Simulated assay, not measured.
Amino acid sequence: MHDLFAAEVRGLDLVAGPDGATFERIRDAFERFSVLVFRDQDIDDERQIRFSSRFGPLETTKVGTNGAGSQLVVLSNLGADGTIVPPTSRQMLNNRANQFWHADSSFKPVPARASMLSARIIPSAGGDTQYCCMRAVYADLPQRLKDAVEHRVAIHDYGWSRGRVDPELVTEEEKRVVPPVRQAMVLDHGACGRSLYLGAHAARVEGMPEAEGRALIDELMAFATQERYVYSHQWRPHDLVLWDNRAVLHRATPFRGSAEARHMVRTTIAGDGPTVAVPHVAA
Rank of each mutant, 00 (worst) to 15 (best):
L12T: 12
I26S: 11
R27N: 11
F30I: 06
R32W: 01
F38L: 07
I43W: 01
E46H: 13
Q48N: 15
I49P: 02
R54D: 08
F55Y: 07
F55E: 12
P57Q: 15
E59Y: 03
N66Q: 10
G67S: 03
G69K: 04
G69F: 01
L72F: 13
V74K: 05
T83D: 11
I84G: 11
N94L: 13
R96W: 09
A103D: 11
A103F: 10
S106M: 09
K108H: 03
M116E: 03
L117G: 01
I121D: 09
P123Y: 12
T129Q: 08
R135D: 03
V137L: 10
D140R: 12
L145F: 15
V153W: 01
H156K: 06
D166N: 14
E172N: 07
E173N: 10
P179T: 00
V181P: 11
M185Q: 10
G193K: 09
L196M: 12
L198Y: 04
R204D: 11
R204F: 04
G207Y: 11
A211D: 13
R214N: 00
A215E: 15
L216I: 04
M221A: 14
T225N: 11
R228D: 02
H233S: 07
H233C: 09
W235N: 03
H250E: 13
R262S: 07
T268Y: 04
I269P: 01
A270K: 09
G271S: 09
V278K: 07
